[in-house]
Design a protein around this nucleic acid. Structure first.
Lengths: 413, 413
DNA sequence: GGTCTATTATTAACGAGTTAAATTAAACGT
DNA sequence: ACGTTTAATTTAACTCGTTAATAATAGACC
């Protein structure tokens, strides 16, 4: 019972998605939200209950006249998925149950520069530990979602960039991890994964929005009508390389004035390092613990009221705001979400400046007030999105492949 | 028999689209290209033949063994559609038959500044004349596609911008034109329409590409897997307001460094006007015959070898190239088409510079060589796209609503 | 010419959606 | 207490896809 068939969403998949995001729904509500008829929902839900993926959990009391709605929920322990998010120097692992709830979680630090082989080995060990510790039965795990920056070739499971080090280019990421884990592994873009994670968390009030993901680099994701925009080869929304008017810094991509070169965390850290006294005051050393850690020190300094830190961050935030304007104008959006480890502390500052830029400059500002939110879980959103991607994508072998027996439904329990 | 249902493409619609673009196809070929089975094609095609929309036109001789393919074609005279493209000072009207071939065409000039009411009145008269002159039976015309710059509200058929004059904002365009013509009228974005027109012309070798439309202003369109990206409310790809690094000119939208303000035809014309001697030499007066006419004079001067004209156009072309880089990076594209009246003469110059920018700066340049083309019909592409939109969208009432009689097919002719 | 074979098109049986009508289960009003 | 009303769900008949088997048609080979 796959949820997708060559990229197209099935009815079953949509029902599962809705139950996962909303938690508990009746058949009528499912019908309303999917746009399908109640009759179709009856069929789909019956199959899902037979397969043990969905349970009926009582009925709504005192809703008024008429037959009460019977509430449905995903069976949390029916299946599980792992999400592994890898950035230059920090990684996050989560294990989700079938309902999308976090069963286990781990954050890793400081393995920067170790190369893909060693990094994946460490991650695989941690995944195995997590699964063991949390008591999730191995044969109930559908697979793992590996989440990294782009550009990537998702079919082959490799990165198409030499970042962070040359060995990563074309290294068989999903193949290696899959072999070590004994599970199917899907590769996903960090920003897109975070967007799905965000949508699942239910904090975004619309199913059409853009997301800016800031870790060591800057990525973008766009969700339209609940599905991600992927473009030609799933490498869409490289917002880190949007040109900024007034920008001039040279970027690794060869362009000038790219958002990433002008305003990315790495650049902010370098700007601090360039001012010895400031670096000293903020405790920024530019050493092995990586860009994110240093950036976080700067953000905390701003939070304590440091003027120097504030100036640099505000400058970066205005640039990001300008990139957001381009994103919104090109993709016709009215909601932008900020996610990624760079926003742990600096989130509110960025939110304010991005919102200000959009309100001043987005083309649609007269029609709809643009909205900017900071992710509710900047650190784990991407890993959660990776695991969700697995839950949504990997086909589930249906148990009852016997021809559906004559309905013996006399009322549940 | 609608081709679309709430934005989703039907099988019937895809078959008609394919026959329209490819001209002549057999059932097997249709099956292959749609991804449907031969059985499904049999059903769909039978219905289409019964309704008189498709004809069998002989069989392929000597293809090898086996039963020869029976070739199918659209019935050109079954239905017609009108496309009306309106720009500041130039308009184009086309009448297409059901096969998408041009039955009639008219170009209009110099009605700038007349306001929507008067403009539509003139256009409606011309449409009526064209239909009469070309002998297209009125009751066989499905409707008209009105094509303008954005942003627009396509549902209500109004512009959401005060360009070119304040009266255009919220003026009931489709309502007025529909009443005058006695036909359904759909509103469509010029760049998106041109992209459809281009795709139909079959000159673009891929079904995923971006298009930059330059008339008085600059618009953008993106086609992914043969369908247009529309975003939240069909106002996507406002590439005229992408920020350019190094740009600083103030734009009507309130931003600085927008592509349109920095490099649009209007700006180029103004730059020429600012240099009295140059304006004199090129014959540019900045008078009522409009931006496009003046821009065309500059382009022709370049073509004759005028250095001053070349410098200004090249500068504009490089800016457009930078906007194209952003378009390509955000939407993950590898093909960009240039269309619109501004490219009549200047097309090759822009093509060269846009291609150069993409080859130097697009992120995907290492994976796939970015390709830039000038539309084969820069002037009429948008109007044609508007008419195609009508052919693809407006439901056709099926003649035979009688239950399909017992198949009396004993082999045709 | 007669048979075998490859290719195209059609038919038959089935699956997943649709609409319309029927069934079920509670609340309301007397 | 009991029929009426209302809302949720199910069933029934039909549509438009699917796959699998069958029919039609011409080339290849004897």
């Amino acid at each position: 019972m796959p949820h997708f068939e060559d990229g197209r969403v099935t009815t079953t998949g949509r029902v599962l998605d809705l139950l996962r995001t909303r938690g508990t729904l009746s058949r009528v509500e499912l019908a309303g939200r999917t746009g399908l008829t109640a009759a179709a929902i009856t069929h789909v839900v019956r199959r899902l209950i037979d397969d043990g993926l969905v349970h009926e959990v009582g009925r709504v009391p005192r809703q008024g006249r008429g037959q009460p709605r019977r509430l449905l929920e995903l069976a949390p322990d029916s299946w599980y998925a792992v999400g592994v998010q890898v950035d230059r120097t920090t990684s996050t692992i989560v294990v989700l149950d079938f309902a999308g709830e976090r069963v286990a979680e781990a954050g890793l630090r400081g393995s920067g520069g170790a190369g893909p082989e060693a990094t994946l080995a460490v991650l695989a060990d941690h995944v195995a530990d997590l699964l063991r510790a949390s008591g999730v039965p191995r044969e109930r795990v559908l697979g793992a979602g590996l989440v990294t920056h782009g550009p990537q070739d998702q079919e082959r499971g490799v990165l198409l960039t030499a970042q962070p080090e040359p060995e990563w280019l074309e290294f068989p990421l999903t193949g290696t991890l899959s072999e070590r884990l004994g599970l199917p592994v899907l590769l996903e873009n960090d920003a897109t994964a975070a967007a799905f994670g965000e949508q699942w968390a239910g904090e975004v009030p619309t199913d059409t929005f853009g997301l800016i993901y800031m870790a060591s680099g800057i990525g973008g994701g766009v969700i339209v009508d609940g599905e991600s925009y992927r473009g030609r080869a799933s490498n869409a929304v490289e917002i880190g390389h949007v040109a900024l008017s007034g920008g001039s810094t040279v970027c690794v991509c060869g362009n000038r004035g790219c958002a990433q070169a002008e305003a990315g965390p790495r650049t902010v850290v370098e700007q601090v390092l360039a001012d010895g006294a400031l670096a000293e005051r903020l405790g920024v050393k530019g050493e092995a613990d990586g860009t994110i850690a240093d950036f976080e020190r700067i953000a905390r300094a701003w939070h304590r009221g440091d003027r120097g830190a504030a100036e640099l961050l505000e400058r970066s935030a205005r640039w990001i705001g300008q990139a957001a304007v381009t994103l919104v104008n090109l993709f016709d959006l009215d909601t932008v979400v900020l996610s990624g480890p760079a926003f742990v502390t600096a989130g509110p500052l960025y939110r304010e400046h991005v919102a200000a830029e959009l309100e001043r400059r987005a083309l649609s500002r007269a029609l709809r007030r643009p909205e900017v939110r900071v992710s509710t879980n900047v650190i784990t959103a991407a890993a959660v999105g990776g695991a969700l991607h697995v839950l949504r994508t990997i086909p589930i072998e249906t148990r009852s492949d016997t021809p559906v027996s004559a309905p013996t439904h006399e009322g549940a329990s």
